[in-house]
Nucleic acid binder design. Sequence first.
RNA 1: CGGCGAUUAGCGCAGUUUGGUAGCGCACUUGGUUUGGGUCCAAGGGGUCGCAGGUUCAAAUCCUGCAUCGCCGACCA
Length: 574
Amino acid sequence: MRTSQYILATLKETPSDAEIISHQLMLRAGMIRKLASGLYTWLPSGLKVLRKVEQVVREEMDKAGAIEMLMPVIQPADLWQESGRWEQFGPELLRINDRHNRPFALGPTHEEVITDFVRKEINSYKQLPITLYQVQTKVRDEVRPRFGVMRAREFTMKDAYSFHLTEECLAQTYQRMHQAYCNIFERLGLDYRPVIADTGSIGGSVSHEFHVLAESGEDAIAFSSESDYAANIEKAEALAPTEARPEASKELNTFATPEAKTIADLKAKHGVKPHRGVKTLIVYGTPDENEQRGLVALVVRGDHELNELKAEKHTLVDSPLEMAKEEDIFAAIGAHPGSLGPVGLNMPIIVDRSAAVMADFVAGANNNGEHHSGINWDRDVTDYQVFDLRNVVEGDPSPCGNGILQIKRGVEVGHIFQLGTKYSEAMNAGVLGENGKNQVMTMGCYGIGVSRIVAAAIEQNNDDYGIKWTKALAPFELAIVPMNMHKSHRIPDIAERLYSEFKQAGLEVLFDDRKERPGVMFNDMELLGVPYTLVIGERNLDNNQVELKNRRTGEKLMLDINEAVAAITAQIRS
RNA sequence: CGGCGAUUAGCGCAGUUUGGUAGCGCACUUGGUUUGGGUCCAAGGGGUCGCAGGUUCAAAUCCUGCAUCGCCGACCA
């Protein structure tokens, strides 16, 4: 490719709405342009990278025995009604009507469509197990799109679905997919971790996420210092403290706190250390037979955070978890948030394990502008349950029993699930078993955020000059940069000759034939992240030499012109 | 969905307080100059100042409404 006939589209200045480095560099390097919030056009060099990711994904999926197919983006509403997700998925499901006013959805994922396909096409246990996949555009009307293609409303995803007769068979395929995912991220040269995950809106039992480690990641991951244990923080269990609760040593006391409504206020104005107090969060309980929801109090230590996913797993707590409205709280307790506590509270009380081993602690007195000190469980509050409610924090013991937890941030680029029969049962997808009887299939599903990987890879591979692509992802393998070609007789000849020889050798080469100053060309090639640049200049031509620069290492290598093509091709292919 | 902010040329921004017929840098076009790390000089093209309505002799500027985009929040009582 010649730059004069290409859309390089590099930018000197950073567009003001790009927050994270990958978004900035993708815009500056001319990979993407925004069309509207969360919607991006891929320019030629961006698309090249995207296709490289797809290619690696395809090869590894094929190797793992999956079969590629392609399903529509537009999906009829009745399939979603059948699975129950037309209601459940919420506003993230972008809905449209056709000209006959029939409802459709733009597919955020394809469990419904694939299950419908398989129930029609697969009739016998002899055809199982089978794993099908596609690389396709997904649509999710995100609450808050951000970070460019990292969290977009339209994005490219590889989604695979497997169908089985038994749980054991599913577990085997799941393991094979897990391995395929490791192979993919390995080949892409990413620093990644598989972590134990929650199943979220997709459903199922066992699940792992694959995270690319990056400061800008939207997820927190807890790692053991001693073992392979890694889990999304929303899933990591906070173990019960091993030490016993100290004896009560203080009397229950009430003190005025007119200005203190938060844990931070209590610390600033009354010297109460956050870990010596608790916070009491009021949420709605599970509806009773009349569809009425009562209130439930959740108590965590002042310096801890409530984990909503854990809380909503408690049978008394409504799912999805919803914080009680202020007027409902006042109606039930007679006090406003900021002065709430477990003492004398007339509703179910669920206490986090760490809060349950506190003694002589501080909490709101359920009277505006008052707090209690010297509170003790079983003496001052008798009716309560203990449950894991909080997010783990750095330094907590690892749930695996080995080591302590460290917390890092990650970008979720893959997620695999053992779904079980959630969809196959709802949609009546079965096959005839060996015994001649109908049997519901067991399913797994496996997703990779293809377009997100492009951004995640940049988060991990950049410097002050731009992107530093790994071999597997670079849009071009080599750039030819001739110095002041238009002023020289020899340089155009040599550049053209080398260019065609590299093409002949099958290399993806970008020939910068613009009439630009050397600095402009170097900067553009470095911004775009081309791994190798071949510099052709008068200076070295007298010695019959050209110079090869390595983008990642900065290394420079002088090569004889006549050996350059063979040597460089060998190096890049190695 | 709530709070805050922004919207002026392809990009980055000034001008808005105090109303008077729109500007800077980059990019683009032309000519010259320079040439191994974003040259310099000159000339030029490009804007219904987000949209709609209002106030006024006069609106980018003041008022009202709407839209779009972004940030923060949507547990921390």
